[in-house]
């Protein structure tokens, strides 16, 4: 009886490790590119501007935005820096996603090998914030 219980437990454990993990929850993902993606400042309410963008990957359109809309000067400074980053041959966008299959990214940072733009000032490492790094 005990042997049967141990065998059942080992099977459950093996099953859990082998089963692919899909769409578990909010996590962070990196998308990398060889050519610039689209970003712009879009007017919202009360003189606030939203930094938004999009890109296509394997025929699927992904949208990008920031957590909040802010003053025009902040949006334009951010846009200028992001466009600077994107001039490099290779750059990446790190963003928060609702789950692994999400088609929308809340942008955390845009970076290449030399410079980066970050939404937060001095952000911590992603391993400190997210349980799921996709």
């Amino acid at each position: 009886m005990r042997e049967l219980r141990v065998k059942k437990f080992k099977f459950v454990l093996l099953f859990a490790f082998l089963t692919p993990h899909y769409s578990f929850g909010v996590g962070v993902k990196d998308f990398c590119f060889d050519k610039p993606t689209y970003f712009n400042c879009i007017e919202e309410r009360n003189s606030n501007f939203s930094l938004q963008g999009y890109f296509e990957l394997e025929g699927v359109r992904y949208s990008i935005s920031t957590r909040r809309a802010f003053d025009l000067d902040r949006c334009e400074d951010g846009l200028k820096k992001i466009r600077q980053v994107m001039r490099d041959d290779h750059f990446c966008i790190e963003g928060e996603v609702l789950d692994q299959d999400s088609k929308h990214i809340t942008v955390n940072q845009v970076y290449n090998s030399k410079i980066r733009w970050t939404y937060f000032i001095n952000p911590p490492k992603k391993e400190q914030i997210y349980e799921y790094i996709y």
Binding site: D71, R74, C75, T106, Y119, F120, I121, P123, P124
Partner: peptide, 26 residues
């Protein structure tokens, strides 16, 4: 969750008018 991803030290520049946004609820 949406403002700071639960980082109590989160700090972002919000513009000349608003200044900096700080902490969990920015």
């Amino acid at each position: 969750a949406t403002e700071s991803s639960f980082n109590p030290k989160a700090k972002a520049y919000a513009g000349k008018r608003a200044g900096h946004a700080r902490g969990l609820m920015q």
